[in-house]
Amino acid sequence: MFRLMRTVAIIVGYAALATTRLNAMEQKKKTLPTVHSQDTYTSLMAKKWAGCILDSAGVTVEVTGNNSNDDKPVLLISNHEGNFDIPVLIHAIERPFGFVSKIEVKQIPFLDKWMVALNSIYLDRSNRRSSLQMIKDGVASLKAGHNLLIFPEGHRSKGQGLQEFKAGGLKIAKSAGVDIVPVAISGTSDIMEKYDSKRMVPGKVTVQILEPVPASVFTDHSLDEVGQLIRQRIAEALTRA
Rank of each mutant, 00 (worst) to 15 (best):
S101Y: 02
S101M: 06
S101F: 00
S101A: 10
K102F: 02
I103P: 03
I103C: 04
E104R: 00
K106F: 09
K106Q: 14
Q107Y: 13
Q107S: 11
I108F: 10
I108V: 15
I108G: 07
I108C: 09
F110G: 03
D112Y: 11
K113I: 11
W114Q: 01
W114S: 01
M115A: 11
M115R: 07
V116W: 06
A117H: 10
A117G: 08
L118D: 05
L118S: 06
L118M: 14
L118C: 08
S120I: 10
I121S: 09
Y122M: 07
D124T: 10
D124S: 12
R125H: 12
S126R: 15
N127V: 04
N127D: 07
N127Y: 02
R128G: 15
R129I: 12
S130E: 09
S130W: 06
S130I: 07
S130P: 00
S130M: 08
S130H: 07
S131Y: 04
L132A: 15
Q133I: 14
Q133C: 10
Q133G: 09
I135Y: 04
I135Q: 03
K136V: 06
D137Y: 14
G138K: 08
A140K: 04
A140C: 06
A140P: 02
S141T: 14
L142F: 13
L142W: 10
L142C: 13
K143Y: 05
A144Q: 15
A144N: 14
G145L: 06
G145T: 03
H146L: 14
H146Q: 15
N147E: 09
N147W: 05
L148G: 02
L148Q: 08
L149H: 01
L149Q: 01
I150C: 00
I150K: 01
P152T: 13
E153S: 00
G154F: 09
G154Q: 09
G154V: 11
H155P: 02
H155L: 12
H155Q: 12
H155I: 10
R156E: 00
S157T: 11
S157H: 05
S157W: 08
K158T: 04
G159E: 07
G159T: 06
Q160Y: 11
G161Q: 04
G161C: 02
G161W: 00
L162A: 03
L162F: 03
Q163R: 01
E164T: 08
F165L: 09
